[in-house]
Write a protein that binds this DNA or RNA. Structure first.
Lengths: 235, 235
DNA sequence: GACAAATTTAAACACCCGTTTTAAACTCGT
DNA sequence: ACGAGTTTAAAACGGGTGTTTAAATTTGTC
């Protein structure tokens, strides 16, 4: 039988040091390759640690991964800056534009320690793991709900409205597109190298493109169509 | 030495039948799981054929895959209907709306024989293979260029204009989003089950959302009216 | 310092993958 | 009908994965 995790902090030896190093190496590898393509051998190599130790300290690969997610949520790192955007006293349109800029920039640049949280989220989006529920509830949904509230504010609609939800997905979809499909985009549009200036151009476009519709909506002619889904069920 | 492919159609025995069955099974498995997660064992099982035959008839897995791609391009199947949209005499806005409806529908419904081509493209987008260049050039780019030309027409801009390209990506990004991230979307928005009615609602939203920007762009002769019509909305 | 528990190590395990081998079974021209 | 050439079949190969084992080492405590 494999020894499971020490029940508590009974023996705080150099134990914690390898655990920490393992956790940090795992964060990088999982953020680089995603859960499925990450190997425990690469994690252990990067941590300069024996292969068997991930199973000794964490049980199995999946528990190590969830532990990485737990610490990523605990230390929001660069993602904290995104949430701060919404607390500023800017106009909603300005907040939206800044949000798109920051999100696109963080999604595209990839490599950077402070980006671990975002990169883990992107991998979970593209290829969900058994921990997808945790990632959505604790990392993605908070951001999503902030954006949804902001869009509802701009359009003068409740955040639960179908239209608000659809617009939220439209903006998320446009932004993630550049992060997830860059090889194909690069072949369709070779001039787009995603330099800093081009990142700003793209972000500004997404903001302009989206605001054209958002600012059109608050009028009374808000909805005449669609929205015939399950509206009655709620409260 | 391994026997390579028969040099030509020298011996057209029952050979062709297993080749065909292998090719068809491979199409389904590659369309289901994508190249990386597809296994030759599952392909051979589904084709009721011995494991070694894929290497005998096609050399290796990658050549089988490229052969699948070749036949997918040759028999455009349901994708032909998409191209036909652009040749109709509809107004550009109508074509765009129909295009979004058809693309979203074909992307979301997945399982269906006539959808092989689209599903192969989606997998290649999410996780490119060594054949990505071929897929882009022969399948994705033609569609992309059609859409780009259409958007240029609506906006009164050349297809090569940055703005036209950005709008093309915005529409593609919004649409693919629902195909690639459905597990996460389902958890963020549980009421969205992507029924036929909801697919139509989403497609109409993407069209409305995008046309709001498309119709207020340059057209230098109507620059003055653009400001006003922005308040008025579309008729 | 000694002893038991916790930790680390090196090796192997069991499974899956794409691919190859070897030989038997077919096909077809003559 | 024959036999060379083609096609099938079953098994194994070589490499990679996560995981486990059993011995060696380190650690904390008496």
């Amino acid at each position: 039988m494999a020894a499971s995790q020490p029940s508590s902090t009974r023996h705080t030896a150099a134990n914690d040091e390898t655990r920490t190093r393992l956790l940090q190496a795992a964060s990088e590898v999982f953020a680089d390759r995603g859960y499925h393509y990450a190997t425990v051998r690469e994690i252990c190599n990067r941590a300069n640690v024996n292969l068997a130790l991930v199973n000794y300290h964490f049980g199995d690969k999946l528990e190590l991964y969830t532990e990485v997610l737990r610490s990523a949520v605990k230390h929001p790192g660069g993602l904290h800056e995104v949430h701060d955007l919404f607390t500023h006293a800017d106009e909603p349109e300005t907040i939206l534009r800044k949000f798109i800029h920051v999100m696109l920039h963080r999604m595209v640049k990839r490599r950077e320690g402070s980006n671990l949280h975002m990169r883990l989220m992107l991998h979970e989006l593209a290829r969900p793991t058994p921990a997808v529920a945790r990632v959505v509830d604790e990392s993605i949904k908070p951001l999503h709900d902030r954006l949804r509230g902001l869009l509802g504010e701009i359009m003068g609609l409740p955040p639960e409205h179908d239209k608000t939800r659809l617009c939220t997905q439209s903006i998320i979809g446009q932004t993630i597109h550049y992060a997830h499909h860059s090889p194909v985009i690069a072949r369709l549009w070779p001039e787009l190298k995603m330099t800093s200036e081009q990142q700003d151009m793209v972000a500004d476009h997404i903001a302009d493109f989206s605001l054209a519709y958002l600012k059109l909506t608050p009028k009374k002619h808000s909805l005449r169509k669609a929205v015939k889904s399950k509206q009655r069920g709620k409260r």
